[in-house]
């Protein structure tokens, strides 16, 4: 049995493959609108970022290294024509290394610059996260970008009793973006380093400021041993607490995010920041030229393959039907 009906079908297929290929040769590049982002990433380089509690339990990764890896991945994931700048945070301020630059063209220098971030670049041991965030937002507003602030969120020294956030005097929502919480939920000791950079154990309870005694004492201070309203408003015992242990302070960072109009993302749960950036940052439209030639060419390929594959398919079909009729008789 010869499938005569295929003859016209085949000529048609070949003709359409021909036309589609010719079309692929002449179609111009099409400009489409693409959503891109313009962000400044600030990396916390304070001592608590040296804690190794990211990654899995079997292969723990240092927080700073994890944050850097996440940023490097983001640089690769951001759509081309997006821009990214880099800054550091310690003490109470952000420090801009470079303003936002296009991520695809400058991939290599950005990636190496991120790789070279080191806690030794830090200029001060303090880690006033709220003030640092506010300052970083102001710096980001200067270059008209959105912010990614990567930190574990531990205030050192701690906030005054009551935990009221320092006032934010920026315009809420002008700079959008997110705070990325780095670190695990469990409280772990913070490693300590000597002047030469060698690890020498961990911080003990009395090594760090446990309580902020610069403002008014907490309302329950009268209950404390040795309390005297003038001479010992915080009581006479040295403050105790667990400020020498570190975990990602999700509640504090979420409160900061709410105060400044940013979003919050926990890196341990969401190591891919692109989704978070797409949800939180201002989308910018830019036009890019797209090569659409593969579309007609793919159709041409299908048609051409059909010319050759159809007889095979037809034969297979014929076999099946023949088999069936054979069974029936």
């Amino acid at each position: 049995m010869t499938p005569w009906q295929l003859r016209d079908w085949r000529s048609m297929a070949l003709a359409s493959a021909l036309v589609l290929t010719a079309l692929a040769l002449v179609v111009p590049r099409v400009t489409v609108q693409r959503t891109v982002y313009n962000v400044m990433a600030f990396v916390d380089i304070t001592g608590s970022m040296k804690v190794r509690d990211m990654g899995s339990a079997e292969a723990p990764v240092e927080r700073l290294e994890a944050a850097k890896a996440v940023l490097q991945r983001l640089v690769g994931d951001l759509p081309c024509k997006s821009r990214l700048g880099l800054g550091l945070f310690t003490e109470r301020r952000g420090f801009v290394l470079f303003n936002p630059i296009e991520v695809c063209e400058n991939f290599a220098p950005i990636e190496q610059s991120i790789a070279n971030i080191d806690w030794r670049m830090g200029w001060e041991g303090d880690s006033m996260v709220a003030k640092g965030l506010h300052h970083a937002i102001a710096e980001t507003a200067l270059v008209d970008a959105d912010i990614i602030f990567l930190t574990e969120g531990q205030e050192a020294p701690p906030l005054p009793p009551g935990g009221a956030l320092p006032e934010f005097d920026g315009e809420r929502g002008k700079v959008k973006g997110l705070i990325a919480g780095v670190g695990g939920q469990a409280k772990v000791p913070i490693p300590r380093f000597d002047g030469e950079g060698h690890e020498t154990g961990a911080y003990a309870e009395q090594d760090v400021v446990q309580e902020n005694r610069t403002g008014a004492p907490p309302p329950d201070a009268e209950q404390r041993p040795g309390y005297h309203p003038k001479w010992a408003p915080f009581g006479s015992d040295p403050p105790t607490g667990d400020e020498h242990l570190s975990s990602v302070r999700t509640a504090h960072l979420s409160a900061l995010a709410a105060q400044t109009g940013l979003a919050y993302a926990g890196l341990q749960e969401e190591p891919d920041l692109l989704g978070a950036v797409m949800r939180a940052a201002h989308p910018h439209q830019t036009s890019v030229a797209v090569d659409v030639r593969p579309y007609p060419a793919s159709l041409a390929l299908l048609a051409l393959l059909g010319v050759y594959a159809a007889p095979l398919a037809a034969r297979a079909l014929a076999k099946i039907s023949h088999h069936k009729t054979g069974q029936r008789s």
Binding site: L88, L97, I101, E105, S113, W123
Partner: peptide, 18 residues
């Protein structure tokens, strides 16, 4: 403190931004 900003590179936009 000293801060590494960019490695030796010929990417002018990155250098200008720094």
């Amino acid at each position: 403190s000293p801060m590494h900003v960019l490695p030796l590179t010929d990417h002018k936009p990155a250098l200008l931004a720094a």
